[in-house]
């Protein structure tokens, strides 16, 4: 246990169907990996949300800093040739 007497935090990712990407569902507290998996199952899959779970220690996730947003993302905005907007969509095509 850490100083705050809280168990470590784990991020929960759930796959709703085989083949689909795992999506972040939320987080749980748990003393170790097995209990994190069980807590994730009990907290986030009670209504058939998925058939596979990943749990990751929250401190293993490296996040970008909001202060870096300008240098990270804005350079992409004026490079319109990177965006697939120059094609005519065939009529009737779905899910492109």
């Amino acid at each position: 246990m850490n100083k705050e007497k809280q168990w470590p935090l784990w991020e929960v990712f759930i796959q709703s169907k085989t083949g689909l990407p795992y999506k972040h569902a939320g987080s749980v507290h748990a003393p170790d990996a097995e209990m994190a998996l069980q807590n994730a199952r009990d907290t986030y899959t009670r209504r058939g949300e998925g058939n596979s779970i990943w749990v990751v220690p929250s401190d293993a996730i490296i996040a970008s800093n909001p202060a870096d947003a300008e240098s990270f993302y804005e350079p992409g905005n004026d490079k319109i040739y990177r965006h697939p907007t120059f094609y005519v969509m065939p009529e009737g095509a779905k899910h492109i």
Binding site: W7, V28, H29, A30, Q38, N39, D42, T43, R46
Partner: peptide, 11 residues
């Protein structure tokens, strides 16, 4: 004892 266990026991 904790929220997660509350859900587990209730389940």
């Amino acid at each position: 004892p904790i929220l997660e266990e509350d859900l587990a026991i209730t389940n």
